[in-house]
């Protein structure tokens, strides 16, 4: 198992623990990660022009294809954006021609070979639940964790397609394999509020707080995340707040702890 690792913009600067724990865990599971000189996935340009966002995304796809690798991202928003770019390129030949031209100007090309994978299905399917179960040395028994799927891991399902968008089970299964108990919380599939942060801060905060309250009401001790945007959003809203708080834990950290890796190697 070998992938080009696409970290995106947020992880290296704002959530380095995600990278640390990801490398530690995947290293132990025999997944090889290759670092390429990737750029922004294109997400911020979606507000400006579809062409521009697809070009930025295709730039990355082309870099991965040149290296002969599929792309693995632990960022759910990057995942959605890159998958969307592929969809638009697949369904619009004129767009594809324009993008190819832009790539050619940079000495790049994308023929459509690169697959974009999200961390969760790579762990659950490619590595496999059985392998994970075998790697667990220190089960986190008793820990009640609320799975935060992240919108762009699930929807639209014809683009992301990692699980049934209406009734996903993958993240809960991944939590169970660590020995922790996934809690059932009714807002688990909801938006964390992060994308609205710039456009409508009060509304965004309201959405985040509603999720946190629901996770607490459901008896969760931690919100388990697999996206830097969600993770940082929960932390940011809770910072300096007097409301009841809930801890956030990256799935790679939870898994790493269960695998008996030292906390330090997981950025904890």
């Amino acid at each position: 198992m070998k992938y080009a690792l696409f970290l995106g913009c947020k992880i290296p600067s704002r959530l380095p623990a995600y990278e640390t724990s990801l490398r530690a865990v995947l290293g132990h599971l025999g997944v090889t990660l290759v670092d390429l000189d990737f750029n922004c996935c294109g997400y911020p340009a979606r507000n400006y022009s579809r062409d521009a966002f697809v070009v930025a995304a295709a730039h990355n796809l082309a870099l991965a294809e040149r290296a002969g690798l599929d792309l693995l991202t632990p960022c759910t928003c990057c995942f959605g954006t890159l998958r969307h770019a592929i969809r638009f390129l697949d369904e619009d030949v004129e767009l594809r021609a324009r993008v190819s031209q832009a790539l050619a100007a940079e000495g790049l090309a994308w023929s459509g070979k690169t697959e974009v994978e999200h961390l969760l299905p790579v762990l659950a399917r490619t590595v496999g639940i059985d392998t994970l179960a075998a790697a667990v040395r220190a089960p986190r028994t008793g820990l009640r964790a609320a799975a935060q799927y992240g919108c762009h891991a699930l929807r639209p399902s014809d683009v992301t397609g990692i699980d049934n968008p209406a009734a996903p089970t993958m993240f809960e299964t991944l939590i169970s394999v660590t020995g922790a108990t996934p809690v059932d919380w009714h807002m688990r599939l909801d938006c964390c509020g992060d994308p609205l942060h710039e456009a409508n801060a009060p509304l965004s905060e309201h959405m985040t707080r509603a999720k946190i309250a629901d996770a607490l009401e459901s008896g969760a001790e931690v919100i388990c995340t697999a996206c830097p945007h969600c993770h940082l959003r929960f932390d940011a809203v809770q910072a300096g707040s007097t409301d009841p708080a809930i801890r956030t834990l990256l799935y790679t950290q939870l898994l790493g702890l269960a695998m008996g890796l030292p906390a330090k190697s997981l950025g904890l």
Partner: peptide, 20 residues
């Protein structure tokens, strides 16, 4: 009803191709 049926098929390992 939709959510319950989706959950039920999902729990039984039915693979879904939404929108297709």
């Amino acid at each position: 009803l939709l959510a319950a049926l989706e959950a039920a098929v999902s729990a039984r390992g039915v693979r879904r191709r939404h929108h297709a």
